[in-house]
Computed example of a mutant assay.
Amino acid sequence: MYYYYYRNKEAVIGMIRESIAGERNDELFYDYLIKAAPTEQEKEVIRRIRDDERKHRRMFKTIYTQLTGQLPVEKQEPAEALPATYLEGLEKALLGELRAFERYRTIYLQIGPEYRDWIFEIMTDEIKHAGYFNWLYTKNK
């Protein structure tokens, strides 16, 4: 096995732990957006994004387990206040996807090469999601 010197392995593990929780929160939030979406087309787009978030969570859990030798302990975070309108929800989702991309880029730059393809896949999904949410926001503005 190839061992890589992590710049700060504990920080990477902490960011991955936060990412597991963040992907779960996004998944729950997108369930709300699916219900609020006015058309079946919009519901389907958000459904696909939500399913990607589930995939990301599984990927991060696998990475966490491989790095630590332990399963991540998932804490139930209190639910965030739901936005007053669907449009506000789309804006929140768009900004959230962009912030996630920035966090994942930091992980990508600090994690060992054996995980970079996984992080790259997650990062490109987040940018794709931002594009979809931008389209949905513009369509409903």
Score class of each variant (00 low, 15 high):
L136R: 05
I16N: 00
F120K: 14
I34K: 03
I46E: 00
E10A: 12
G96Y: 06
L87I: 15
I13C: 08
T106A: 04
L82P: 13
D31H: 09
K9E: 08
P113V: 08
M123C: 09
A79K: 15
R7L: 02
A21D: 13
I111L: 03
M15H: 02
P78I: 12
P72N: 09
A81S: 14
T138A: 09
K92T: 12
T85K: 11
D117L: 15
I16G: 02
T39M: 00
V45E: 09
K141N: 11
I122L: 07
R48D: 04
R48V: 02
R99I: 01
A130N: 02
A81T: 15
E121N: 13
E102N: 05
R116M: 06
K43Q: 08
N134A: 15
L95D: 14
T124Y: 11
G14Y: 09
L95N: 13
M15P: 06
F60I: 07
K128Q: 10
Y104F: 06
A81V: 15
D31T: 05
L33A: 01
D125S: 06
L136T: 11
N8I: 08
K75G: 11
Y5N: 10
L94N: 11
F29E: 12
R105A: 05
P113T: 12
M123L: 09
A93I: 05
I127D: 06
L136W: 08
K55H: 08
A37T: 00
Q41I: 02
T62P: 03
E97R: 00
T65I: 11
A21S: 14
T68Y: 07
W135R: 13
N140W: 11
G89L: 03
K61S: 09
I107K: 00
L33E: 00
Q70I: 02
G89H: 04
M123E: 03
D52V: 00
L28H: 14
Y64V: 04
F120C: 10
I122P: 10
L67I: 01
E27D: 13
R50D: 09
K55D: 10
Y108E: 01
L71H: 15
Y64H: 05
Y108P: 00
R24D: 13
P113F: 09
I111T: 00
P83E: 12
Q76V: 08
R47Y: 02
E102D: 11
A37S: 02
E97K: 02
E53V: 04
Y30M: 01
N25W: 06
E77A: 13
R58I: 12
Y30F: 08
G69N: 08
R54Y: 09
Y108M: 00
G14I: 03
Y2F: 10
D52R: 02
Y64W: 07
M59Q: 14
P78V: 10
A36M: 05
T62D: 13
T138R: 13
E44S: 03
L95P: 07
E53Q: 01
K139G: 10
K75L: 12
Y2T: 10
P72R: 04
